[in-house]
């Protein structure tokens, strides 16, 4: 079972350095674990616990509180259909039914080829474009049945690979500066504006 790769371990250490207390980095690190493996493997969670000096049970207990973390494998594309009020009023139930039929799985299920996991979610704050859904937390609005089918085809064919990275990848922007200056507030001296590297 995978632990963090050397590169991800480095990222995790940088995250820990950002916070006054290491445990604050737990959720960001779990996002890295999920980015690496697609879900939170027991070894990945245990590794996070080691880095933060907390028991793996606490890692698991914390992770399991949050909807975005999966402690079992899910598909490459996590299709999250919102059925909360604004979407409900605009046909979300019908969209979800269609999605179930199209993908052949009930909410919570993963297609046999491991490509798609369907889930029904609470409001994703995209209500101006209801009914809407997210794939790997990239948002798609005003989705009718045909839109859904086209989306699934595009995803399966890899046509949206740039916009929709594999499940687990959340933030592709790495913090570039200020990592070491992070922890306690720097003394208020008059050093030149630090770490002013061009971005």
């Amino acid at each position: 079972m995978p632990r963090l790769t050397a590169e991800n371990l480095q990222r995790a250490r940088q995250l820990i350095a950002l916070y006054p207390q290491p445990r604050s980095a737990l959720i960001p690190i779990l996002h890295i674990v999920q980015e690496q493996d697609g879900w939170l493997t027991p070894d990945g969670m245990a590794h996070a616990g080691e880095l933060l000096d907390i028991d793996p049970a606490e890692v698991y207990g914390t992770a399991s509180f949050y909807d975005m973390f999966f402690t079992h494998p899910v598909g490459r594309h996590l299709v999250s259909v919102c059925t909360n009020l604004a979407c409900l009023l605009n046909g979300a139930d019908e969209l979800l039914e269609h999605a179930e039929a199209r993908l052949g799985v009930a909410p919570g299920g993963t297609t046999a080829d491991g490509q798609f996991t369907l889930e029904e979610v609470e409001c994703i704050a995209f209500c101006g474009a209801a009914p809407c859904l997210a794939v790997n937390w990239r948002f798609f609005g005003n989705i009718g049945n045909e839109d859904f089918d086209r989306l699934v085809d595009d995803l399966a064919a890899g046509r949206l690979a740039d916009d929709v990275p594999p499940h687990g990848t959340l933030n592709r922007v790495r913090r570039r500066v200020g990592l070491s200056a992070a922890a306690p507030a720097p003394a208020e001296d008059t050093d030149a504006p630090a770490q002013a590297r061009p971005s």
């Binding site: 606490e58 698991y60 207990g61 914390t62 399991s64 509180f65």
Partner: peptide, 14 residues
């Protein structure tokens, strides 16, 4: 967690 320092059980889920 608090008394024994053995936080090997926790709440899971929500």
């Amino acid at each position: 967690d608090e008394v024994a320092g053995d936080a090997m059980i926790d709440f899971i889920g929500r």
